[in-house]
């Protein structure tokens, strides 16, 4: 029963967007004052978009809620990793509290914390810029080292295809940074590395990307159609 309800709701939801897009906004006979057909779904489009935003917010909250359940369970049962779970929950509460007090001045006043505004702002800045921003940038920066290691292991001239890939990577890597201009500035513009890199992006890369995108979106369309129509799903 539940799966049937889900399928029906999915079908109707998809049908709404398809019909709203495919049907014309209005149809009018030549010289007529009023149209004889107006799209009945268009007035509901804003409500549908609001529902999408609400659903997105609900989905966004699912992650933290599951994390809290999991780590709180760890802590209460004192399983392996309970200390780490305690640290996570502490920082979660701290971050929520500081952000809430910062964003909602009425809450600050209601809690009698107006006098400590500067302290809360400093605490928020420490968590946001000192920890979160720094950790986020660091985790992405690690990719640079993995890239060097991967280039050392995998960029090997072991076949013609590998060689072409390596030379292409070399040209693009140098062409994208000022180093390429520096190394080839003495050559005519047509022979400089940035020009070659631009050609690689504009011609062979674009051709391949078009093929990939056509294939990807054809697959996504098929998958979306299956999901919308409930085709191939198990029945109760």
């Amino acid at each position: 029963m539940r799966k049937t309800v889900v399928r029906v709701v999915t079908l109707l939801g998809g049908l709404f967007f398809v019909l709203e897009f495919m049907l014309p906004a209005e149809l009018r006979r030549p010289g007529a004052d009023r149209p004889y057909f107006t799209n009945p779904f268009s007035p509901w489009l804003n409500l549908a978009t609001d529902l999408v935003i609400v659903l997105g917010t609900m989905a966004f909250l699912l992650g933290p809620i599951n994390l809290i359940r999991s780590h709180f369970g760890n802590l209460v049962r004192w399983r392996r990793g309970a200390v780490e779970s305690a640290v996570f929950l502490l920082f979660l509460a701290l971050g929520l509290g500081l952000a809430g007090v910062k964003e909602f001045p009425d809450l600050k006043d209601a809690l009698g914390l107006a006098a400590a505004s500067d302290a809360f702002q400093s605490g928020y800045n420490l968590l946001f810029y000192g920890l979160m921003s720094a950790f986020g940038a660091t985790s992405m920066a690690l990719l640079a080292f993995y890239l060097v290691s991967a280039a050392y292991r995998s960029f090997r001239f072991q076949s013609l295809e590998a060689g072409v890939m390596m030379i292409t990577a070399l040209v693009v890597l140098l062409g994208l940074v000022p180093l390429g201009t520096f190394l080839t500035s003495w050559l005519p513009t047509e022979l400089q590395l940035p020009t070659w890199a631009a050609w690689i992006f504009a011609v062979p890369n674009s051709a391949v990307q078009r093929a990939v995108v056509i294939g990807t979106f054809a697959g996504a369309f098929a998958a979306g159609l299956r999901l919308w129509l409930g085709v191939g799903q198990k029945t109760e």
Partner: peptide, 24 residues
């Protein structure tokens, strides 16, 4: 930041070249 990026790309290229010299 263009110069550190250039040095980073140079490191990738140098690693690839070293690996190929060693293999050869």
């Amino acid at each position: 930041l263009g110069v550190p990026a250039a040095f980073g790309n140079g490191a990738v290229i140098a690693a690839a070249v070293l690996g190929n010299i060693g293999l050869w």
